[in-house]
Lab assay of single mutants.
Amino acid sequence: VSEWTEYKTADGKTYYYNNRTWESTWEKPQ
């Protein structure tokens, strides 16, 4: 699942961004 990158927002929430599909999600990808 290497295309997903984990980021943190300014208020400390974690989200995930897909470099291949430009998708972002709050849930941890499978």
Rank of each mutant, 00 (worst) to 15 (best):
W26A: 08
E3P: 04
T25S: 14
E23Q: 03
S24L: 15
T9W: 04
Y7D: 03
E27R: 07
Y15R: 03
K8Y: 13
P29E: 08
S24W: 15
Y17H: 12
K28L: 11
T9Q: 08
E27S: 09
S24P: 07
T21F: 06
W4R: 01
E3N: 06
A10G: 09
Y17E: 12
T9A: 06
T9I: 00
T9R: 01
Y17M: 12
T21M: 03
K13R: 15
K13P: 00
W26I: 06
W22I: 02
Y17K: 03
Y16E: 04
A10S: 09
Y17V: 15
T25H: 05
T21E: 07
R20S: 11
W22Y: 14
S24I: 15
N19A: 08
T5S: 12
W4N: 02
Q30E: 14
N18Q: 03
G12V: 00
T21L: 08
E27V: 13
D11N: 08
Y7G: 07
Y16S: 03
K8R: 09
N19I: 11
K28F: 13
T25E: 01
E6L: 02
N18V: 03
E27Y: 09
K28N: 11
T14S: 11
K28D: 12
W22L: 14
W26Y: 13
Q30K: 07
D11S: 04
E6S: 08
Q30I: 13
D11K: 05
K28Y: 05
P29W: 07
E6F: 05
W4E: 00
T9S: 09
W4I: 05
T5G: 05
Y17G: 03
E23K: 01
V1D: 14
P29T: 05
T9V: 04
Y16P: 00
V1G: 12
E6D: 02
Q30R: 03
Y16T: 01
E27M: 04
E3C: 08
V1Q: 15
R20I: 15
G12L: 01
T21G: 06
S24G: 13
T9E: 04
T5H: 11
S24V: 15
W4F: 06
K28T: 11
N19V: 08
E23F: 04
T14E: 07
W4L: 04
V1I: 09
V1N: 11
T9H: 02
A10T: 03
N18K: 01
S24D: 01
T14K: 10
A10K: 10
E3W: 02
Y15M: 11
R20F: 15
E27I: 11
W26K: 02
K8D: 00
G12M: 00
W26E: 13
K8V: 13
W22T: 14
T25N: 08
Y7E: 06
E3Q: 09
T5Q: 09
Y16R: 00
T21S: 04
E27D: 12
Q30L: 14
S2R: 06
N18W: 02
D11G: 06
T9D: 13
S2N: 08
T21H: 02
Q30C: 14
E23T: 00
Y16D: 03
N18F: 02
E23V: 06
S2W: 00
N19K: 10
E6W: 05
S2G: 14
Y7W: 05
Y7Q: 08
G12N: 02
N18P: 08
W26P: 08
E23A: 07
S2K: 04
Y16M: 02
A10L: 13
K13E: 08
W4K: 01
R20G: 15
E23D: 10
Y17L: 11
T25L: 10
E27W: 09
V1E: 14
T25F: 12
W4D: 04
G12R: 00
T5C: 13
A10E: 13
V1R: 05
T9K: 03
T21N: 08
E6K: 04
Y15V: 01
Q30S: 09
D11W: 05
G12A: 00
N18M: 00
E27H: 11
V1W: 14
Q30M: 08
A10F: 06
T9M: 05
Y15K: 02
D11Q: 04
K28I: 14
Y17D: 01
E3F: 09
W22H: 15
Y7V: 13
Y17W: 08
T25G: 04
Y15T: 00
T14F: 07
Y16L: 02
Y15Q: 01
T25V: 14
W4T: 03
E23G: 04
T25A: 11
R20V: 10
D11T: 06
E3V: 01
P29A: 00
K13V: 12
Y7I: 12
S2A: 10
N19W: 08
Y17P: 01
Q30G: 13
T14H: 10
S2E: 14
N18D: 06
K8G: 01
K8I: 04
V1S: 12
T5N: 06
K8H: 09
D11L: 07
N19L: 00
V1L: 12
W26Q: 06
K13I: 06
T9Y: 07
T14G: 03
T5E: 07
W26M: 13
A10N: 03
W4Y: 06
N19M: 10
N18H: 04
P29I: 06
P29F: 10
K13G: 09
N19Q: 10
W4G: 02
Y17R: 05
E27L: 09
S24T: 15
Y16G: 00
Y17N: 04
Y15I: 04
A10M: 12
N18T: 03
K28G: 07
P29N: 05
K8M: 13
W22P: 04
E3G: 09
S24F: 14
T25D: 01
K13Y: 14
E23W: 04
R20T: 15
N19E: 12
W4Q: 04
S2L: 11
Y15L: 11
K28W: 10
K13M: 11
